[in-house]
Write a protein that binds this DNA or RNA. Structure first.
Length: 420
RNA sequence: GGAGGUGUGGCUGAGAGGUUGAAAGCAUCACUUUCGAAAAGUGACAUACGGGAGACCGUAUCGUGAGUUCGAAUCUCACCACCUCCGCCA
């Protein structure tokens, strides 16, 4: 959500934003709707003012005849008021629907492009793993080591179902524990949030109204969140935060549910694309300053890069193009890990900042040092998703005999250096 | 799941259809007094939207939404949250 005043004063910017993000949003329609809204608001407020003034006179009028005459007069005003209020209500519905579709303005540095194909590589780390033997893919490796069971996963859950078991499960715990320590040492407060959330939280983050098909819903109309970002942002909704606490840094740990609607033919095998997984997510609320947002955005992304580097997995970082940005995102980096058997980099992390796009929807505010109210800024970045991280880990660290070398930093959490 | 109760500003808490954005107290800030502090006194003290260069003015907001009424914090209905008791449960 952007400020309507800003939108009207910067129509061209918003138009450009829509084009860059390949959104069909029509600014002109919103401007027309807002003009109607203001005009009706003025009429309605005028009539209410008349009503308020007269009410006070009626209250003190002793003469019953005059009193009745006043009341009758106000009956007419009321009729007029109701008519205009109904018109205003209709305009408001249209206006609100349009406001929820306004794209946030991407940063100047965001490249043009249609899809993830057009993302710009900004960094490569590590050598693509070379093997003296024919490497196996993660499915084969993990099945052989009894780390995963897809057949029974599908039997119980259906398409994309899986069991992590044995070292597959144990390795996941090791990663979570290591991540908790790693990100904890960077000042993040660990949080286990609720993942059954009211829909308004998905509107708040900007996932709705766009991606309705991607969510599992409960029979009570609540949604299963696809990321801890949703409940962590909702956490401070309607609050006025003490700016002494900025930046607020949370490390959310939660299951993540994704219907993956429309991706039936993609990544049908293995652990790349699943309906439920676990993720540690970094979320930050900070003061409303572009520079602060940029600084923290780089920091968030760097945190995850460092984490991956400490595991020793080759990766690259891409700057997402306009067409690959979400509605509310100003700028986004993806970190992609090398997957040897596929011979390509696969996304593992996403770092974005939103300025006050999300906090306006959530009504998360603070007072600056002059006592003036502002909407906070928000950012988020994946810390680590499991089991997707296992894909790169087992493929890059496999040995000829099918065993897996455990990264040094995980050994103390796992209690061994080889998975066999 | 059953029965009952509660929801008012940063907090406590009055108000029970009529000039109530809302008494009082606490907290906060400014000023007075003081060498300084405490205490006391005086005053200020919500947010959003619209109008205005501005001082200001208008409208809305008493958990949320709808309704009754010329007029709703106050009456009605639905929903949400919390509390107490019973049941169930990890």
């Amino acid at each position: 959500m952007l400020d309507i005043k800003f939108i009207k004063e910067n129509k061209d910017l918003v138009k450009m934003a829509a084009e860059k993000k390949h959104s069909s949003f029509d600014v002109e329609a919103l401007v027309i709707s807002d003009d109607k809204r203001i005009a009706l608001l003025n009429i309605v407020e005028g009539l209410r003012g008349e009503q308020n003034k007269m009410n006070n006179s009626i209250a003190v009028e002793k003469d019953q005849a005059i009193r009745m005459q006043m009341i009758n007069e106000m009956r007419l005003v009321k009729e007029d008021l109701i008519k205009n209020e109904e018109e205003l209500k209709a305009v408001m519905i249209e206006w609100q629907a349009l406001m929820l579709q306004v794209p946030n303005i991407p940063d100047m540095s965001v490249p043009d492009g249609d899809s993830d194909e057009d993302n710009q590589e900004v960094k490569i780390w590590g050598e693509k793993t070379a093997f003296s033997f024919e490497p196996k893919d993660h499915v084969e490796l993990m099945l052989n080591l009894k780390m995963v069971d897809f057949e029974r996963g599908v039997k119980v859950h259906g398409f994309r179902g899986y069991y992590l078991m044995g070292m597959g499960a144990t390795l996941s715990f090791a990663i979570w524990n290591y991540a908790l320590e790693f990100f904890g040492s960077k000042g993040f407060v660990p949080v286990i949030p609720p993942v059954i959330v009211r829909k308004q939280n998905l509107y708040g983050t900007g996932h709705l109204p766009g991606d309705t098909e991607d969510y599992y819903m409960t029979q009570d109309g609540d949604a299963l969140a696809g990321t801890a970002e949703v409940p962590l942002m909702g956490m401070h909704a309607d609050e006025i935060i003490d700016s002494k606490n900025f930046p607020i840094k949370y490390l959310g740990f939660s299951p993540c549910f994704r219907r993956e609607a429309g991706s039936h033919s993609k990544d049908v095998k293995g652990l790349i694309r699943v309906h439920e997984f676990y993720k540690l997510e970094q979320v930050i609320l900070c003061e409303a300053s572009h520079n602060e947002s940029v600084k923290l955005h780089e920091e968030l992304n760097r945190n995850t890069e460092e984490f991956i580097e400490s595991l020793g997995i080759p990766y690259r970082t891409v700057l997402n193009c306009g067409g690959d940005l979400g509605q509310g995102q100003v700028k986004k980096y993806d970190i992609e890990l090398w997957v040897p058997k596929e011979s390509k980099y696969r996304e593992i992390s996403s770092a974005s900042y939103f300025h006050d796009f999300q906090t306006r929807r959530f009504n998360i505010r603070y007072r600056n040092t002059e006592g003036k109210m502002h909407y906070a800024h928000s950012l988020n970045c994946t810390a680590i998703p499991t089991p997707r991280i296992l894909v790169s880990m087992v493929e890059n660290f496999q040995q000829a005999d099918g065993t897996i070398i455990v990264p040094k930093v995980l050994q103390k959490y796992l209690g061994k250096d080889i998975i066999s």
